Amino acid sequence: MLELALTRNGGETLTYRVSKAKDKEEYTLKVSSRPEYFRLTSYQAKPLIESASLKTVTETIAGVGEQESVSNTDKKVTVPDTSGEGTASE
């Protein structure tokens, strides 16, 4: 399972949870701001889960630290808005 929590500038926290079905190569995405569950195929979900592995994240942070301080990596991220239409910039 992969769970990410993002806090918007206004203080609202969004949680994204990707879980694998027990008996299938199928995944489910649940976004805290929406009532629906979304089905993801294996080829959609696996890269997300693998890129968020502890090894990958720590290697990425170490690489960033060599180029610049981690505290100086304030970047904009675009996420779906709460209505599901368009995007909202974080």
Rank of each mutant, 00 (worst) to 15 (best):
T78K: 11
Q67N: 07
L40T: 05
P80K: 01
D74S: 11
L6A: 13
K55F: 06
G86T: 10
G65T: 10
P80C: 09
R34I: 09
I49N: 00
V31R: 01
L40Q: 03
L40I: 04
D23P: 01
R17L: 10
L2K: 00
A5R: 07
L14P: 00
E36F: 02
E3L: 02
E90F: 12
S19Y: 02
G11S: 03
V18E: 00
T78D: 07
Q44A: 10
L6C: 06
A62H: 11
Q67H: 08
A5N: 05
R8H: 09
R8N: 04
A62G: 04
L6M: 05
E3M: 06
E25T: 12
E50V: 07
A52K: 06
P47W: 10
T78L: 09
G86F: 14
A62R: 11
T87M: 10
K46M: 08
V70G: 05
K20S: 06
L54R: 15
K20G: 03
S33G: 13
S69K: 14
M1D: 03
N72C: 05
G63Y: 00
S71A: 13
F38M: 08
K46Q: 07
I49D: 00
T82P: 03
A21C: 09
A21W: 14
T13H: 04
R39L: 08
G86H: 10
S19K: 01
L54A: 14
K46N: 06
A52E: 06
K24N: 14
Q67T: 08
F38Y: 10
E26C: 08
L6N: 04
S19Q: 08
P47K: 12
E12S: 06
E12K: 09
V64Y: 04
N72Q: 15
V79S: 04
Y27P: 01
L48D: 03
S53F: 00
G86Y: 11
K75C: 13
S33K: 04
K55T: 14
K20D: 06
T13Q: 13
